[in-house]
Amino acid sequence: MSKSRVFSLHTSLSLRKILERRKSREALEALLLISVATGLNIVFGYFAAFFAFYLSFFKWDYISPMEFVGLRNYQIIFNDLWKGINGAYYFLAPFYTGLKNILLYTAIVVPTQTILAMILAAFANQKIRGVQFYKVSYFLPAVTSPVIIALIFIWLFMKNGFINYMIQMIVPSFAPDWINDRNYLLYAISMVAIWGTSGHFMVSFLAAMQSISRDVYEAAMLDGAGPIRRFIYITVPLLKPMIVYVVVLGMIGALQMFDLAWVMAGSNGGPGGAGYTMALDIYNEAFINLRPGVAAAKSMFLFVLIFTSTYIFQKKYKVMRQ
């Protein structure tokens, strides 16, 4: 073994040592950096969630000691659903009403906001003058408080408000009382939600679109594909992972909607309970009916609903990574 070889072996060993030490230090630093966020998440996220699960088996009124009731809180939920299915009035089956409304709301909002966000992103991705202005104006609702947005829309949706004024230019006889008519309330809330969230998801789509290679479009152009065909056959398929992401996030947001309903319909869900949601019902159960145990059980139901629906969707449409 030559001297130089021994030397080089030695240096490489010590180098590796240094590298390893560096790695463990990096790991330590990484742990330290995430410790604050993780700590907060454990206390306010996981602890709260597990406590809610625990609470769902107890009867409690905030003051007296907690009393274990087994599955009685869940039985109350299923009684409510059963009554609702058998056609009870909305105020006698509030949880069923909330569930029915929120499913309809999700079915309206999620597809619409996803498609709209994609179209807006396609426009924002063009090289046209003032595109920055459009991007900012689309995104603006995403940084505005939903409560403020809802308050402004209540005003726009009034019977003699701006929205009916615009509609009457096209359909003169159509002037619904959006907020006070149970047939229109949920649609009014959905429109506000779509308006408020499309801009946010547009940014996600825009980022994904900008990562699509220009070559693909150029090849398609040479083959004679027009802009609409290019959008349908190139942009949309290549955006699939982002679509899944947007739909999943949209579903999570829509199923637990609270703020818009609270402001636009009120805590009782407005006329005919048309704006009543599961989140409103959970709130009322906890703070009006003073049954935090039942509220916790209802929130477990909502969690299972959100978890399974998003899981199934992801599983079905997940893009296999090569």
């Binding site: 009035y89 105020f91 805590s267 009782n268 006329p271 005919g272 309970g273 009006i288």
Partner: peptide
């Protein structure tokens, strides 16, 4: 709250 809801309806 609930009786008022019924009345309103």
């Amino acid at each position: 709250s609930k009786i008022s809801d019924v009345m309103a309806s």
